[in-house]
Design a protein around this nucleic acid. Structure first.
Lengths: 161, 161
DNA sequence: AAGTTTGTACAGTTTGAACTTTACGGACTA
DNA sequence: TAGTCCGTAAAGTTCAAACTGTACAAACTT
């Protein structure tokens, strides 16, 4: 049986966990709500509906709807179906670390790759254009591309484990 | 000698490089101005003053002053002294990749460690408090701490290279 | 078919980060 | 000593991200 005092203390611990844990998740380019939402789902024993989340975080249903779709995009949360329940149900993916790393690292790699391509394009344009006294710039550009390559290598490595 | 046309085309390439390269730097928790500023310094042959930067980016001197101090904090930029020059001069650190990784990874590790400590504190408090039916929460909390440990390991690894 | 319920699109509002302007103390100069 | 220049602190402004409330389409119920 659960006393009121227990309930309160437990809630208090939940608050603290949400508060601290979500700070870490925010470092993975998730915003505050998305992070808190994930922690809430992570701590919950059962899948939750948008209304559950709304009550848990004290924010609008629209905010929940938007954030949950971001989390779905990142593959950090999944929709589950339970017979007889009409509302959509969501739960946090297992394998916290793996999913996070994958989601995060892949987004990074995509972005780095995009910028690297653009820099290479600039490099080509410069060569075609052959401007005087651009040796210094060409060199720096080349260095910048190398920088992107190193970043890519490091992050690919991070994902392998 | 440099023709006007050359000058313009070169500027155009500079713009593009600043635009693209700074996007990558922004992923390292630098804001737009800090990133652009770093690229400007990186591309420059000589050290620059606050006024030079101001002109290069078309923003206020205060903005430059603030951003440059952030970059100094992160050890991505250094102040240099040249005899006879009264204004402060700054230049980008060499070893682009190494400095960046160090700056970035260390900030991350600091943050992760802080949150891990806080979670551990909560864990202790929970054990002391001994609430009924908190087994589930205790387990999740433990998992969250493990998650932080894995993150730390991964990022420490990233820094070793 | 009419009436609910649920999730999301959209428009308007709030809030905080980033920026600018102004002000000022300290360092140099004549 | 008075005057100038430089960097930064402080206060006010701007703008985009995040949030809310409203409206609506689709799915379901009776």
């Amino acid at each position: 049986m659960q006393t009121d005092e227990n309930r309160e203390t437990l809630d208090h611990f939940h608050y603290q966990m949400i508060s601290e844990f979500s700070k870490t998740l925010e470092m993975f380019s998730l915003n505050t709500t998305e992070s808190q939402l994930f922690v809430i789902l992570y701590l919950s024993n059962q899948p939750m509906t948008l209304d559950d989340m709304k009550n848990a975080l004290g924010k609008s249903k629209t905010a929940m709807s938007n954030s949950i779709r971001t989390l779905l995009d990142y593959n950090l949360v999944e929709r589950v179906w339970i017979k007889g329940v009409r509302k959509d149900l969501y739960q946090a993916e297992k394998d916290l670390y793996g999913k996070f790393m994958k989601a995060y690292v892949n987004r990074w790699l995509d972005a780095i790759d995009r910028q690297k391509s653009n820099l290479k394009q600039i490099e080509n344009d410069m060569k075609t254009n052959q401007i005087l006294s651009s040796k210094q710039t060409e060199y720096k550009l080349h260095e910048a591309i190398k920088f992107h390559n190193l970043l890519e290598e490091a992050f690919v490595e991070l994902n392998k484990k």
